[in-house]
Design a protein around this nucleic acid. Structure first.
Lengths: 193, 193
DNA sequence: GTCTATAGATAGATAGAC
DNA sequence: GTCTATCTATCTATAGAC
């Protein structure tokens, strides 16, 4: 703080977060190692442990960033939508983005191992529930909106995971189809066709 | 085959599979290591590599066993059900069994890394879809049954994953509630309440 | 306060003994 | 054919230099 070093340190911290996030996106939880993150950030491994003394600390920091971004992304996506079919397609797009799913799965696994990250995951889930609730209300939902939001979220998570694992090329279409059905059931009366 | 050694070898192979499965259930993909599996099977680590030359081979074998059991479990569960509410509760029970979810997640991650396991996962998903389709037909489904089955499956997967990660005590109730809604929407007309 | 070199632990695979 | 001892690679963490 006495010199301009402070700023460059923050930059460095940011750099590490970015590198960590990118590593998680590409290699998932298993490939999330200090050496890999360090290499991507252009630093040495032991450099990472300086800023984040333990692997878990690093993961918590990266997880924090991941959750914030994910919530922002959902917000941006939902905010621009007006019709059900638009929404289904947009969510299907999000859901079949493998990098996203890898980060999600990493958070799930980390939560299963460590309470600290569990809380973080809870924040993510609740945040999404809130956003989706607002969204459903806006496009004409029922009073049950919050449970519907969690329903829609669980469905989306399931579609992500199955899509990642099967890797089938028609995953996005299928997802969009199911989301369309679900949204129609939630918002309107019966589904299409 | 010339002596009774053959049988004990098969026993040993079986032993390894059991140990592998148990390890996956308790520690998930990350904790699935040769030393751990070996210890649980009462063997040495290098013993594992004899029967399964590479870590991936072991995982494929254990994955195969896991898929078979999972399909059998789903079959047994669905076979005994007659009403929608019963079904929702039973599926909620399956879905909130963390050991199950850990195995599922392991298969997903392995699939993301290796095509061999991807096919296996496809088998699992298709097998479940078939079983659920039959089930839905039995309790009075519509002609759309197969898509409905995949819908229900995706929802269940999502509920599993979210439940594992949040670890909230009301996970099972919530899951049962959503599954009830979904089943009513699929089978009958509108949901309850 | 920042960074480096190194130590300690654990995983996976192989070559070779029985 | 079965099993063991060992080697290499890789990861995390620490003690200490600048």
């Amino acid at each position: 703080m006495s010199t301009n070093q402070g700023e460059s340190v923050n930059e460095r911290r940011q750099q590490i977060l970015e590198a960590g996030l990118a590593t998680l996106r590409e290699h998932g939880y298993v490939g999330f190692t200090q050496p890999r993150v360090a290499a991507r950030a252009g630093l040495r491994q032991s450099h990472i442990t300086y800023y984040h003394p333990t692997r878990l600390d690093l993961l918590a920091a990266v997880g924090r960033a991941a959750v914030d971004r994910q919530l922002a992304a959902v917000d941006a996506t939902l905010g621009a939508l007006t019709t059900i079919d638009e929404a289904a397609d947009a969510i299907a797009e999000l859901v079949t983005r493998y990098e996203n799913t890898r980060v999600l799965m990493a958070l799930v696994q980390a939560s299963d191992e460590e309470p600290r990250l569990r809380e973080l995951f809870g924040e993510l889930v609740d945040g999404i529930a809130t956003q989706v609730t607002v969204f459903l209300g806006r496009i004409g939902g029922s009073p049950l909106a919050e449970e519907s939001a969690r329903f829609l979220h669980a469905l989306s998570v399931g579609l992500s995971v199955v899509s990642l694992a099967t890797g089938r090329p028609d995953g996005k279409q299928r997802a969009a189809g199911m989301l369309k059905t679900a949204l129609h059931l939630i918002v309107g009366g019966s589904g299409p066709a």
